[in-house]
Design a binder for these strands. Sequence first.
RNA 1: GCCGAGGUAGCCUAGCUGGUGGGGCGACGGACUCAUAAUCCGUAGGUCGCGGGUUCAAAUCCCGCCCUCGGCACCA
Length: 646
Amino acid sequence: MKLVTCGLPYANGKLHIGHLRTYVPADVYVRFLRMMNEKVIFICGSDCHGTPIVVNAEKEGISPKELVEKYHEHFMRVFKEMEISFDFFGKTTEYYHHERTKEIVNRLIEKGYVYSKEVELAFCEKCNRFLPDRYVEGICPYCKSPARGDECDQGCGRHLEPGEILEPRCKLCGNIAIFKKRKHYFFKLTAFQDFIKYYLSNLSGTENAINYAKEWVENLKDWCITRDLDWGVRFPLDETLVLYVWVDAPIGYISFTEKFTREWEDIWLKGDAEIIHFIGLDIAYHHCIFWPAMLRAANYALPNAIVASGMVKIEGKTFSKSRGYVVWVEDEYLRAGFNPDYLRYYIVNYTSHEKDLNFSWDVFREKINNEVIATLGNFLFRIMSFSWKNFGTVKMVVDREIIERIAKSKERIVEAIRKWEFKSATDAIMELASFGNTYFQNSKPWEIIKSDKERAMKIVANALQIAKALIIFSYPVMPKSMEKIGKAIEMNLKSCSIEDATKVEKELKIMKLELPFEKIEEKDLENLKMALLDRFAEKPEISIEDFKKLDIRIGKILSVERVEKSKKLLKFIVDIGNERRQIVAGIAENHKPEELLGKLVVVLTNLKPARIMGVESKGMILAADADGKAFLLIPEKEVEVGTRVK
RNA sequence: GCCGAGGUAGCCUAGCUGGUGGGGCGACGGACUCAUAAUCCGUAGGUCGCGGGUUCAAAUCCCGCCCUCGGCACCA
């Protein structure tokens, strides 16, 4: 028996293609396993706790419960439409989940793996709540840059311990945050270092996740598992605290299994099943370190494999919701009327599971039109149509070479699926379709049928057997379309085994098949491509008064030097006419300091001064930002220093 | 900076226990008509990131360098 899970989607936003990068391959995997007659349970659910949900609910003026409910419904709807076939999709707000979580945490406590410690935490008196580190803004104590409570994100990049940050403010309301002592609880993660090392050395799955974990395991710290929040699973030793979401979220794998089947104990306590977690690489830490340590501590069964998918890019750009490089599954893909199977195929076939997947609408169109429709779809359609028109019922006498060719594909597919090589598996399908086309083309049954109907039928039988195999092999990837096509030869794919691909019926009855796929036209994509571009370019309109607030002048670079320990930063002294300014600019990556000396540049002089990596900067040197590289703006002719720019 | 993955024709990739660089898409030419201008046959296109070394022989092994992406924890 196998238990397959997917990382729980966080019930704080809609599903995008990045999510599907994990869920689609997992679903394809599960569907193949089912066809390989393996007993498999496929589990997922909404991750509903944590501060971001509370904060976002407040913003929307609804309760956290309502917010979570909204996205939970969204997830279920989209997964259904995308044919992601979870056996059970739960949510972590449910009673049974809280009970299972508390039971496990109690075990950790009983075994002495939890201890308490006084820590100082930021507290906002106006919002009347403790602030998680990333909701605190202040100054880095090391380099004096603006920083977040948990790390100096703009300056030196150092990790900050709670309480270290200077001048802390509440990110939500802007008020000064104070530090309060509070007793929190820690899990003795450090006690599991040797265990995790050993565990990782035996862990199966994709190398990307395991390699990272091997590095992380060298430097473990105990893990603070409680938060000051009303929303979440109550911590048994102190009901005023809730558990950190990353404690209860993975326990969802257990509680959802428990809710779904009585066999849950065999799986999670006795260890009778192979447990396989599909995740995004971003949560590898939790799944390779925290999670196995917790399970071990509580005496539960351990995962056998962690399968981590690579990142998603949109039109070649790094995926980013805030910058607009995102494709929303429901609003953009499904609502545009595309067949869900197209996206499923794209995701599993674009590249190998661990590598970055680039989603581009043009590539999407080309791949689908050429591979799914022209190669595979057209083969199925031409064979079915030819058989239906000329025979109706075909006596299935199939050559041994044909069966062997199909068996070869089957083996390659099964082997690839077992290694999570979905591209390789789907490539094998396309190769078989291509073989079918070649066979049919070279056999010319449309000519032969004029003189020898028997011989033509033999060719058709061979082609039909290939078609049948293709429908079976493609079903896990494109279930909706294959079901439709399969009906034309009375196949019941739901109860089909992959072994049926090489089994030969006495005869096949063929019904009329409507065009199974619709090509993607350039015009279908226009709006979607535009939407992507607009989103990226979007900036609010401003008035001339707004623009006049900017004091922009021509300056002359008097001196340049590198900022210590920084790859990007240069420190300038710039003459702006009436004074000399020290300005820091991030252009070191494609400029040599000595080449910049004496150059005239455009300077925004009334920018609020800032400290960048500990160095004061008063103003900004303007440059064109071309894909992260900075190119200085330089006046067309030599003008006087201090000249205004309008 | 440190660690990991990777750099093979415009794009996606196979090859990486060394022995004349394969495939797919796209491009170009031809054939055919059962089929959604689909399919089939053929052609062009590569300094296998760069520089050294080992070897009779290196994309493949060793050394150095460059570039890309990711990780460097409590971020859900």
